[in-house]
Simulated assay, not measured.
Amino acid sequence: MKGTNKDYEKMEELYELYEQKIYFVAFSILNNIQQAEDVVQETFITIYQQLEKVCSLKTQELKRYILRISKNKAIDSYRKNKRHGLFLEEYQREAVEVVNENIGAWEQYSMSEAQIDTLLTTLKDSYRQVFKYRIFYNLTYKEISELMGMSEVNVRKQFERARKQVLDVIGGTQNDELKELKKNG
């Protein structure tokens, strides 16, 4: 979409009118300043992509439309946070089982989003996709098999292999740290 001066003026006007309202809606759902600011940005990107439609709406319709976009984006972000939390809980629970010698340290360990992304790059593409569908989106093996066009048995096997690789990477790093601590201790 090619932007004109008129488009930019309209976006500036919309920003002035709705930025605080969008932020309030997002913050009330997420209770997080950075994520609420991200929702404001994502909302205005969506508005810009649909600028022709937005310009044709009347004032009240426009306000409802913009606030609905921001509410939906905030809810999506909230759900993503919730999925991430479930993945971290699962990770921490299994990590404790892998390294029984140092349970206390593992209970305190949590991964950042960047660490999770880095960890998943060690997996083959199909393993990574199956792992994400299963962990982040909580899909069943049957749903994943339909999405990816492979047998349910194959999906289950790929998930188990991906899970084992993730645990090996996590366990390997932790074991190295434990050996180093024991050597120095």
Rank of each mutant, 00 (worst) to 15 (best):
T4Q: 05
N5Y: 11
K6Y: 09
K6L: 10
E9Q: 13
Y15L: 09
Y15R: 08
E16Q: 12
E16D: 10
E19M: 07
Y23R: 04
A26V: 04
F27H: 04
F27L: 01
I29N: 01
Q35L: 14
Q41M: 08
E42N: 13
I45L: 14
I47A: 03
Q50D: 14
Q50H: 13
E52V: 06
K53V: 09
V54R: 01
V54F: 05
K58N: 03
T59V: 04
Q60L: 07
I66R: 01
R68E: 07
I69L: 14
K71M: 08
A74K: 00
A74E: 01
I75S: 02
R79A: 03
R79M: 09
K80W: 07
R83E: 12
G85S: 08
E90P: 00
E94N: 13
A95P: 03
V96H: 05
V98W: 03
V99N: 09
N100W: 12
E101I: 09
N102T: 08
G104L: 13
G104I: 08
Q108D: 11
S110A: 07
M111D: 03
Q115C: 10
D117N: 15
L119H: 04
K124H: 11
K124F: 07
S126N: 12
R128L: 04
Q129R: 15
V130P: 01
F131L: 07
F131A: 05
K132W: 10
I135R: 15
Y137N: 13
N138M: 10
N138G: 11
N138A: 14
L139H: 11
E146C: 06
L147H: 12
L147V: 02
M148G: 00
M150S: 08
